[in-house]
Design a protein around this nucleic acid. Structure first.
Lengths: 354, 354
DNA sequence: TAATAAATTGGGAGCGTTCCCAATTTTGGG
DNA sequence: CCCAAAATTGGGAACGCTCCCAATTTATTA
């Protein structure tokens, strides 16, 4: 024993490569003295394995802590059983909630979900697109960045035969399934509510005009004003880039108008909540001096003082439905893809801010 | 032409398999009439390629919309350049914020992040563990479920040589790097603050005793009481399972005590916020009748009325630091792993609830 | 200019699976 | 008990890539 040189006692690989060895079906096969094909069959539930053999294999796999390498499976199957979701941010509650819904549905269907965050940056969105592609996702859920106005990176998915579904921040130019809420109708009910509260000078603090949710909500705002014979005043309509810290600028602008608006319909809850804080700071009374309505029913909207009147949307449901539409496409032939747009209902929740 | 049988005009594969064809380095090689080795070299930035050749290859890759198949790369490299993160939930703001920090750091280091959510369920946590394993993550960030008290699934990572880092909800039994905030100190400052406000009967609504954050915060609570000579009253200490809808039960219990507590130190902000709502509903004044302090400085805590006094923790920083610790381990040999516990500072933010 | 060194290229094995097909074993009927 | 049919097993190619090594081309020096 002592005659062996120390180095010679261990196989070279220990010194040359520290790469961890993974337990493979070949290890299991060797341990049981059978072929890897049989092990593979047992592990995938193929019928042509003797019950007794299968049992031994399963036991051994367990004992050896075997875990299937999905990469080689994906490689050979050319399908990853993985879906991707690209969201602009998830620091606020909206997108995380959507993701929860999407993950639920994906999991039920045996899919994993890769989440990526584009940080409201077009560049990052394009980069995330490539990540999805190289990770071989079978399909992608997308909600665009506020600055996205070139859609080549989305079209790449289509050219590669990877189905996509847009939700919330949809892309009008692309003919693919989409999930939205009835933004127009939601905005109408919000503005109508304000009018019925006796408000006459209703301002609208909207987001980027590129986003269709903004277009729709604005259309609802405009048409409702028209319907009730209230003149539209362009001074009362502001588009901003959704950076919360800029809300201050526009609220100040509104407060300094003469005459001052008596209500604000905000594009979303974070905007509305920020507006509430600023208006309180300015010493004005909500809703008496200025009423506020938001959009989304975020978690925080019931907590602010005064609590926020808002247009509730079924957030997790958006994720579930979008995922379902994606799964639907995975079964079908490419030519057969339907580009239905699912529009979910909204619901006005009246609280103390209006 | 017309003589060809229709079926014969197209290769069989079109009918037999609708599997989408992926652009591979072989396609690029064929198009340029060179070998796949050279293409591979050009694409991976290997120096031994003639500049002119490299340029042609890069152009062609772009034109053909080539996207590297990470599965085959991971397969051959036995490393996925992917990190995993397992969190108990992300419907509230804490974990999403941690994830944002983790993703930042991971991205900088060229890693992707697979996010999974265990839904506060031990079963799901174990399942997620297997997902991570089969997706060949190079390392994992973990914050445990409230019900996890068996750690075999975590030890599997270690046995396979996959480094792990715990954060927030750490596992005391495992000797691995951990990132926490100074829960003890944070709790001390919170309780001390309440005492200095003249509060004498300070209740503590804590979480599951299995979680070390709960143990630490409780220890801080107890020791601070002792330090100020305030007798500990077990009736004033409640452990609950963090299901927000159960807060009602325990707040009612506190309110019906005689004498009633004059302050509540809540285990986290969602709990504290819920408590505020309930106490307001009961017609009591905050902080005069009962003062409330939370823990985390969640987004919503500045919005509630009265705004919540809370122990701020550097949430995104937790994610960044944890990821850094994980990356550190990836460079090192297994034997060399250090099990340092990084403890980040907290900061009491006094608002109107106390 | 020949010989040698250096740079560039190509061929082929291998990563861990699946799946086809052929080889082997088991079963059952005459 | 033999032979065909059925069930079970094994061998090996393939998925797309990297990387080693050998072959080829180009540059350098005597």
């Amino acid at each position: 024993m002592g005659a062996f040189p120390i180095l010679g006692m261990l196989p070279n690989c220990v010194y040359l490569s520290m790469k961890k060895h993974q337990v493979t079906i070949i290890d299991i096969a060797k341990a049981l003295n059978i072929s890897k094909s049989t092990v593979s069959r047992a592990l995938t539930g193929h019928p042509n394995v003797q019950p007794h053999t299968r049992e031994r294999i399963l036991e051994m796999a367990d004992a050896m802590e075997y875990e299937k390498n999905m990469f080689s499976v994906s490689l050979i199957k050319r399908a990853s059983k993985t879906l991707g979701i690209i969201v602009p941010e998830f620091s606020r509650s909206f997108f995380p909630q959507v993701i929860i819904g999407a993950q639920q549905r994906a999991k039920e269907a045996g899919y994993n979900l890769i989440i990526s965050q584009s940080d409201e940056s077009y560049e990052t969105e394009v980069a995330n697109t490539k990540v999805m592609l190289s990770h071989q996702v079978d399909g992608v859920l997308i909600s665009m960045t506020k600055e996205t106005n070139n859609y080549e990176h989305f079209k790449t998915f289509q050219r590669k035969g990877i189905p996509i579904v847009f939700f919330n921040r949809i892309c009008d130019e692309m003919i693919v399934p989409k999930v939205i809420v009835d933004d127009y109708e939601g905005a109408c009910s919000a503005v109508e509510h304000l009018i019925k509260q006796g408000k006459k000078r209703i301002a609208h603090l909207s987001g980027p005009e590129t986003l269709s949710i903004c277009k729709q909500r604005k259309a609802g705002y405009l048409n409702t004003l028209k319907k009730y014979g209230i003149p539209v005043n362009d001074d009362l309509i502001i588009h901003y880039d959704l950076s919360i810290n800029k809300v201050k600028i526009y609220i100040n602008y509104f407060l300094n108008l003469n005459p001052r608006p008596d209500a604000i319909f905000a594009i979303n809850d974070p905007t509305a909540i920020e507006a509430i804080q600023l208006i309180k700071e300015a010493g004005l009374k909500i809703p008496q001096d200025i009423a506020i309505v938001g959009f989304s029913n975020d978690f925080a909207s019931s907590l602010v003082e005064p609590s926020l009147t808002t247009v509730e949307q079924p957030i997790a449901e958006i994720g579930r439905v979008a995922t379902q539409l994606l799964l639907d496409q995975l079964d079908r032939e490419v030519a057969d893809w339907k580009a239905q747009t699912v529009m979910l209902k909204t619901n006005l929740i009246v609280r103390n801010s209006s």
